[in-house]
Nucleic acid binder design. Structure first.
Length: 260
DNA sequence: CTCAGTGTTCAGTG
DNA sequence: TCACTGAACACTGA
């Protein structure tokens, strides 16, 4: 479930569990895809004995700050998630990495589809992939002027631009659809054809939706019933909260739910 | 058995 | 170089 609010919620849970503790042991699976640019064993060796002092995030990427670099950077892909538990027997299926802390807590990264990535960086903010990201709505929310400027230069469908992490870091498929549904804008409309008023609505909804989703810990049962989110998953004859039919089309290479 | 999926990357094209 | 599009990646579950 990992878009910005889900990743932020997970980061907070992991940080709460790990901050101030020493990593006593590390389990790694021999997965050369999920571990990107580093051998799993090397990763484990670098983590062992380190103390977790904090964490930070940009877009869908976050990292743990240790008492000395390099730091582990996590990206959940489509199916990655971090689990916190006490007993080894709770280690999840498809576990790619597990940190054992000095208080017995275990933090395990699970990723069945293996589209997530674990990396090691000395200074995550200044190195790829994070250095390639656009603004983060929580840390560096862009001014309206920047939205207008970038939208004017592009002609891709507005949904495709919202999904572009070089524009804005953290938006994924459901948030892009939610923004455009609430802003009442056709996802296929090229950004260079949006009016200033439409652009302003998009910016506002983007900020509101992400802020709210984080506030409720990305618990979708707490999302307002007016949000498209609750109605978009039933593929057949889906209707929104007002009974309007939801259409499913393909935009930006993704299934897109919207209401005319 | 087939296909889509809360994401990213890469090849091909303009 | 850049922007854009669509396929590829890898695997589960409907």
């Amino acid at each position: 479930m990992p878009e910005l609010p889900e990743v932020e919620t997970s980061r907070r849970e992991v940080t709460r569990a790990a901050k101030g503790h020493i990593i006593e042991n590390v389990f790694v699976s021999d997965d050369r895809i999920v571990f990107d640019g580093i051998a799993p064993r090397t990763f484990a060796n670098k983590m062992k004995g380190r103390k977790v002092v904090g964490s930070d995030r940009r877009g869908k990427q976050y990292w743990l700050e240790l008492d000395k670099p390099p730091f582990p950077v996590f990206h959940y892909g489509m199916t990655g998630w971090m689990h916190v538990y006490k007993d080894k027997s709770e280690r999840p299926r498809f576990c790619k990495m597990e940190l054992l802390l000095d208080n017995g807590t275990r933090i395990g990264y699970r990723d069945p589809r293996r589209l997530g990535r674990i990396r090691l960086r000395k200074d995550p903010l200044t190195e790829p992939p994070i250095s390639n990201l656009g603004f983060d709505p929580v840390h560096d929310m862009a001014e309206l002027a920047l939205f207008v400027e970038i939208f004017a230069k592009r002609k891709a469908p507005v949904k495709a631009v919202l999904l572009d992490q070089k524009f804005c870091a953290g938006i994924g498929n459901w948030i892009a659809d939610e923004i455009l549904y609430q802003a009442k804008i056709d996802p296929r409309k090229p950004t260079n054809q949006l009016t200033p008023v439409e652009t302003k609505r998009i910016r506002k909804k983007l900020e509101d939706i992400i802020t709210f989703a984080i506030k409720v810990g990305a618990d979708d049962s707490k999302f307002p019933r007016t949000w498209l989110f609750h109605y978009r998953w039933g593929k057949k004859a889906a209707k929104d909260g007002k009974g309007n039919p939801i259409e499913f089309i393909r935009v930006g290479g993704r299934t897109t739910a919207w209401v005319k």
